[in-house]
Design a protein around this nucleic acid. Structure first.
Length: 256
DNA sequence: ATGGCCACCGAGGGTGGA
């Protein structure tokens, strides 16, 4: 089963790219973040025409997550992790015997911001939810935009004073790993590990990026995880003729 | 070159992203 996570930065602007991705890579599960639309604007019909089902947790303007899949998901949790119930940053469902949890973690803005404390509180809630889920579903994968750089080697430039790599954020992520999850990342020869590049300053071209889109597997599932890939080609303007504007994130895939 | 911010809302510039 191919599982993908992709922060698309607006599901409607990126719809041509998403449809091309589904045709080209045929994922079984595609987890999206930053839909940036309400349910009535979410492209259910277009995805159905492409042969995919979808479940989504939508919010106007900000956030929003969905799971697009070939088969029907079971035991769906709509937005199980929240501090403010109007913020839609989480969704989970089971496909065959695999529990898929899709998160869009709070960005946090800067470490002296209130949003930073909010991020740490959100992560604590996420940890609690994952812990409960692991008891119910031994084969589990947590995917999404974590907005945390796990290791120094995952950043072009690393500073512990900066958001995304501060000590408290990394500790919060470590607490989640400590539940018994394994980072599915696997290096590709001659390639940086990054999944996000700033739109500004030619960052993609210069390969100035971060790895913040993660796939974390339970021990039970990890035995069958293979073929970790970052599809950087989706960042090329020429990749999708219908929509040359790309997301600032690349899709990350595993097979299991 | 695989390039030089983008998307949202709302009607223009402010805000958030990372």
């Amino acid at each position: 089963m191919k599982i993908v996570t992709w922060n698309v930065n607006s599901v409607n602007v990126r719809l041509p790219n998403i449809l091309k991705y589904l045709t080209e890579y045929q994922p079984d599960i595609l987890c999206l973040q930053e839909l940036k639309c309400l349910e009535n604007k979410y492209p259910i019909a277009e995805l159905k025409e492409a042969g995919y089902r979808t479940i989504q947790s939508c919010q106007k303007t900000y956030n929003g997550v969905s799971i697009i899949s070939k088969s029907l998901g079971k035991n769906i949790d709509y937005n199980p992790v929240y501090l403010d119930k109007d913020e839609k940053r989480s969704i989970a469902a089971t496909y065959n015997d695999i529990r898929v949890i899709n998160f869009y973690v709070v960005n946090g803005q800067s470490i002296d911001s209130d949003k930073y404390l909010y991020k740490l509180r959100w992560l604590k809630k996420a940890e609690k939810y994952i812990k409960e889920q692991l008891k119910l579903y031994p084969k589990l994968v947590v995917v999404g935009d974590f907005n945390i750089i796990p290791n120094e080697s995952d950043a072009y430039e690393y500073s512990p004073d900066n958001i995304l790599c501060s000590l408290k954020e990394r500790k919060a992520l470590q607490q989640i790993f400590n539940l018994g999850l394994i980072d599915c990342f696997s290096p590709n020869d001659g390639e940086s590990p990054y999944t996000w590049w700033d739109y500004r300053g030619g960052a993609f071209h210069r390969d100035i990026g971060y790895r913040i889109d993660l796939m974390l597997s339970s021990n039970n599932l990890y035995k069958q995880v293979s073929n970790y890939q970052v599809h950087k080609n989706t960042r090329h303007k020429s990749w999708c003729e219908k929509q040359p504007k790309t997301s600032d994130h690349a899709p990350v895939m595993i097979e299991c």
